[in-house]
Design a protein around this nucleic acid. Structure first.
Lengths: 345, 345
DNA sequence: TTGTAAGCGTTATCAA
DNA sequence: TTGATAACGCTTACAA
């Protein structure tokens, strides 16, 4: 199956020639709204099909100064919630022909900075970042790029521009309160080390705040490995927890996977969930209601987050186009979170 | 925070002027290997930094006829295995500056065809598809594009070109045999309806084959909803199974999530796993060893799959560059699968 | 090692 | 409604 190398690519000029028109007319025929007679359009589209012409967007972008790209930077794809956010973003953006350039920061702000530099070379029309702390240079680069920036999955104190998300601090505080309400007093928090500036750290801070407000000591903090906690590292952390703070009656985990791991460690040790140690997570992944026992967790809506962010992008881009030279002032969309209490607590 | 609109972009010519050289010299300074004196290079790179110059890859691609893109089409991101494959692909491809253009087919070959047309406009240098059946036009488009094509996650009978994966049929057959070996006789298969041409169908066929080879009746087939089976639809299917084939002693599910759902349905009905009904899945997701009971499943290696595919791409691209006009003959890399028997069966 | 000139395949712009 | 022409910002190819 040797490839028919050098298969000469069909260009717009080939179509133009075959249809007996200029390239501009072909170009117009190819968009929905181009000012062109129905007759010429159908004739051209016929030729396009006959010649199997595939427009070259690289050339188009260069000429029109519109790349058609939106950059999306997330910590990792290895998390169904981010994956869902991406799918939601894609679905909305593709309705207007925008394509996503995806990057993974691995929860590392230096990697993020690197990626942004790289992505900016493709001249994206907007950029969506998941908040987890950014380097100074990242913020500089973004400002210089003068394209809309949307931070998602958090409502940062000092946002770069637009935001779509919720307060991880508040959400964690709420869950901690809910657990305290259920009668637990010796609560622990299970999270990552080296989480400075991340949403995980915000959740931990929310836990600490709620504990202090309730007059309880928030000293039971297990911080194991770097983000993200997997189920396996969650289990390790669970074992550390039981050894370090054997009096713990409830452990609130930075994420659902961490909670699955912790729960498995607890059960394996012969203790019962929730009777000996209650467990709660963060995220409400689909599996969480099917675990044994079903997991109490903070429900977030990754799908809604993605589509809200995408719609915001469209709105901002549209405002910029409409000559609104100053575009829109920074928008802040708050998405809801919900405490879902199940049998694990 | 009104945006400093019209922030005039710095071009290569600006850098050239500021450094007192031609754009070509700047261009050369910006690549690792450009023939240029160390002195000029450092001087130019200084200017680049000072002016915050960000090269425009759109222009670069048009001129060099290299987009730097590799298109990756997967059924969905809503599956940790695909996400891992993508991460592995990304890691390898980014070492040579290739960037991924990602698309989701939603397990729909028409959507795939549509995506391919769209993606081809960006002139990707290669394309990676997950096999789940393709339309005729898809194959045509790919052939005309004359770029390397790699099908992954299956070893199709009639591959388009290169492949990296395993036989879903064989894997499912092996697992079915393993289950039969364990003493089960009234096995059921739980999968999707409308799965023509998909890997799910191949797994079902593997189940049927193994049953027939063992002289057992493969009539217990539950086919519920369209791909992919979620945990929730898996649970629905599990209930249907127990109603339709109450004598079932073991159910092999098309995927791990389906198996979690089925297992939950079985447990909820008051039956025990594996004593009343054994359960097995396909995929070996991280969570599978932490379920109650731990899940027997077919282990695949999504990470290795992604990196093997990426390396293959690099090899093929390199061969093409080296003037090997005929490139490489179709390569077929087989990845291993492993039967992991746990307490659920 | 550096520079010049000519595109790359589109679309913006203006004119007809 | 259509067309001619000039970009778009870079790199190739060749010359110096």
């Amino acid at each position: 199956m040797t490839k028919p190398q050098g298969n000469p690519t069909v260009r717009m000029s080939d179509v133009a020639k075959a249809a007996g028109v200029s390239t501009m007319t072909v170009s117009r025929a190819l968009r929905k709204d181009g000012p062109i007679s129905e007759e010429t359009r159908t004739r051209i589209l016929d030729v396009v099909r006959k010649l199997n012409y595939v427009p070259d967007l690289t050339a188009g972008s260069l000429s029109s100064k519109k790349s058609g790209f939106v950059t999306v930077l997330l910590p990792s794809l290895n998390n169904l919630h981010f994956a869902q956010t991406v799918q939601a973003l894609t679905e909305t953006l593709e309705t207007v022909g925008l394509q996503i350039l995806l990057g993974y920061t691995n929860y590392c702000s230096d990697k993020e900075e690197e990626l942004i530099e790289l992505m900016l070379r493709r001249r994206p029309e907007a950029i969506i970042l998941s908040y987890d702390g950014h380097t100074e240079r990242t913020e500089e680069l973004l400002k210089k790029a003068s394209i809309p920036v949307v931070q998602i999955w958090e409502t940062p104190e000092r946002p770069i521009e637009h935001t779509v998300g919720f307060s991880n601090f508040d959400a964690a505080r709420q869950m901690t309160c809910a657990l305290i309400d259920r009668g637990y007093r010796k609560l622990a928090f299970l999270g990552e080390a080296h989480d400075a500036g991340t949403r995980g750290a915000a959740r931990r801070a929310g836990f600490v705040a709620a504990m202090e407000e309730a007059g309880l000591s928030p000293h039971r903090l297990v911080r194991h490995k770097t983000p993200p906690v997997s189920i396996t590292t969650g289990a390790e952390a669970g074992r550390i927890l039981m050894e370090t703070y054997p009096d713990t009656d409830c452990v609130f985990c930075v994420s659902d996977p961490a909670a699955f791991g912790a729960m498995s460690a607890v059960l394996e040790s012969g203790r019962k969930v929730p009777d000996d140690i209650a467990v709660a997570g963060f995220g409400n992944f689909e599996i969480s209601q099917y675990s044994t026992p079903p997991l109490s967790t903070v429900a977030v809506d990754p799908w809604r987050l993605g589509s809200a962010a995408a719609q915001l992008i469209l709105k901002v881009l549209d405002a910029a186009k409409t000559g609104n030279a100053h575009a829109l002032p920074p928008q802040h969309i708050e998405t809801k979170v919900e405490m879902v209490m199940r049998e694990s607590s």
